[in-house]
Amino acid sequence: MPIVTVASPKGGAGKSTASIILATELAHAGAEVTILDCDPNRSISIWADRGTLPPRINVRSDVGESEIVKTLKQQDADGRVVIVDLEGVASRLVSRAISQADLVLTPMRATTLDATIGVRALALIEEEEEALGRAIRHAVVFTMTRAIKSKQHTAIEKSLRGQGVDIITPPLMERAAFSALFEFGGDLRTMPVQGKMEPAAENASAFAQAVYNRLVGKGL
C-alpha cells in the first residue's frame, strides 16, 4: 500500500485540492484509495459530504498524532493507495505521517513565501531519512499556476531543481473546476461544467499519472 503524505507547513498551498485530485484520478484509473483527513479544518470531509463519493474512494476523518501511525498500519493492504491530507502547520502529526510515507508530496504555489516555508518540509524529510535509515521519496508540485510562467515561478523552480528537488510536471494549474470540487463534491466528471473542463481533466489526469509513476518507480 503506497502511502502518499501531502505535507507543507504553509497553509493555502493547495494540499487538500491536490489530495482530492490525486485520489479521484487514481480511483478513476482503477485504484482503491483511502484519504485520511488529518486536517482539523476537515477540508476533505467537507468535500466528501458535498456529494456522492466516487467509486473506490473512502475517507477517514479526525486522525490525530497519537493514532496516525496505528491507522496507517491498519490500512495496510496491497493494491491500494492511502493519501494523508495534513493541516498547513509544522506539527508532530506531520512529522509522524512523513515517517510512514512512500512518497511525500509538497504542494507549493510559485511564490517566494510558499517556497520558503515549503522547504521546511523538505528539510524535515532529510532529517527523518537519517533518523529512520531509509530513503523517503519526495516531490514538489506547483499549484494554482498560470498558463504563462511568472519570473518568480521560473526562479523558484530553477533553485529547487538545482538543489536536486524532484518537481512534478505538469503543475496543477489554477482552474475553476479544481476549486469547485469543494462546492459540488465528487470528481471532475460528475460536477456541472465549471470553466474549461477538458483542460482541467487533462491536467488532473497527467498530474496523477506523474505521481503514480513515482509510486511504482517508473518513467522518471
Binding site: A90, S95, A131, L132
Partner: peptide
C-alpha cells in the same frame, strides 16, 4: 522521528 521533527519546529500542536 519526533526528535527530528522538533529540531525543525514540528512540535506537538
Amino acid at each position: 522521528v519526533d526528535a527530528a521533527g522538533e529540531q525543525h519546529g514540528f512540535v506537538n500542536r
